[in-house]
Design a protein around this nucleic acid. Structure first.
Lengths: 209, 209
DNA sequence: ACCGTAACACTAACTGTTAGGATTTCAAAA
DNA sequence: TTTTGAAATCCTAACAGTTAGTGTTACGGT
């Protein structure tokens, strides 16, 4: 096979990490706008082009940790416990994600994100990609065509729950409040999508791939 | 009063229009990315700085027409017919807005927007501002505190309806489908916000300012 | 030991955007 | 009418993010 040792990959990962660390340190120190890509490159002791070889843009340096967000949402749908209804699983995952980014040590980072318009815009367009991925996971899970409106709607609503919670003074309560509404929406749309029995007990797992 | 003649304002508006026209013409001709701000300025026969005096950025040149979007949403809430329930009015307005930007003559523009990532991102952050304005209109209309979660949620859901419809192959049907879900969500959240009588007949107009 | 390639560096540009400062043009006060 | 203040515009130059072009190095498989 062609993936045994990997000194190259380790070095590459190390370089990436070095850049991300340097960027975050400088951003927190001087503020996002006051730090240039050239500063980051110098601090990490790499060339400017190397920074862009690892990160799509300046904003991506900030959201490096947030990468598994999408994966966790999809996993919440596909890999949940048998017989566990969809919505509670989704709600629980959103809860966890919200807690994660409102925790004490992560707070300064998210405060910075809130204060820089470019970062807010970047985050939201990220969330939209996540919503599309979640929608795809939902349709796949239920064996529905990929463009099914109800699934794409629920996916966006779930992302909204996260965004609204992040803006809220009481994030956890907001998640619950929004999810009450989402569940009502889902129960309105679901009957025409999944066979009634599946709704009743919600063992819609083992969907025909 | 001090607003009688207004040659200055006419000239200013004319300049703005000249820039917007030039930009749109060039964008459609050569594509958004292939046209630089300097090209637009030259075509409109103005200085580059003048372009930025009228538009916040390159993307704003594309969404110049779309300005009254927010105003129309707010108006749909505040200035609707007496005794007309909220949701149908909102749904009708979204329908109109969707029709407006999927019409024949507007189609090429929106196709371009869909193809350029920077424009999609800009549009979505615009929509978020609209959602906030709509949320403010809702809370004001019902005499609720500005941070009420249910209103901010419904506002975002309504914006989602628009966005999902724009992405859909059958926009009109998508609006209806999403709004069925939104109404269910609203009926779940509303009882704890507005007095039951107001929900029943939904004459929640003439709200205490 | 050799070779292909992936990671990185260096340079130089392109593009959106802004600051600084001059100049014109209008509108209203004097 | 003349003057004056402000708004709109222009010009130049620069800054910052981003990319292309082109080497150079170090790894990994042969």
């Amino acid at each position: 096979m062609t993936v045994p040792t990997g000194r190259r990959e380790r070095k590459k990962a190390a370089t990436r990490q070095k850049i991300a660390d340097a960027a975050l340190r400088l951003f927190m120190e001087r503020g996002y706008d006051a730090v240039g890509i050239r500063d980051v490159a110098a601090e990490a002791d790499v060339a400017v082009t190397t920074v862009f070889a690892h990160f799509a843009g300046k904003e991506a340096l900030v959201f490096d940790q947030d990468e598994n967000f999408e994966q966790r949402l999809v996993q919440a749908v596909h890999g949940r416990a048998p017989h566990e209804p969809l919505m509670p699983a989704l709600r629980r995952e959103i809860h966890a994600l919200v807690r994660h980014c409102t925790s004490e040590d992560a707070a300064p980072l998210w405060r910075m994100i809130d204060e820089v318009p470019a970062l807010r815009a970047y985050e939201e367009s990220m969330r939209l990609r996540h919503a599309r991925a979640l929608a795809a996971a939902l349709t796949a899970h239920f064996g529905l065509p990929p463009e099914t409106t109800a699934c794409r709607t629920i996916a966006r609503f779930a992302i909204d729950a996260f965004s609204l919670a992040r803006e809220s003074t009481d994030p956890e309560a907001t998640v619950d409040e929004v999810f009450e509404m989402i569940e009502a929406a889902w129960e309105t749309a679901a009957p025409s999508l999944v066979r009634p029995a599946a709704i009743a007990e919600d063992h819609a797992d083992s969907a025909p791939s």
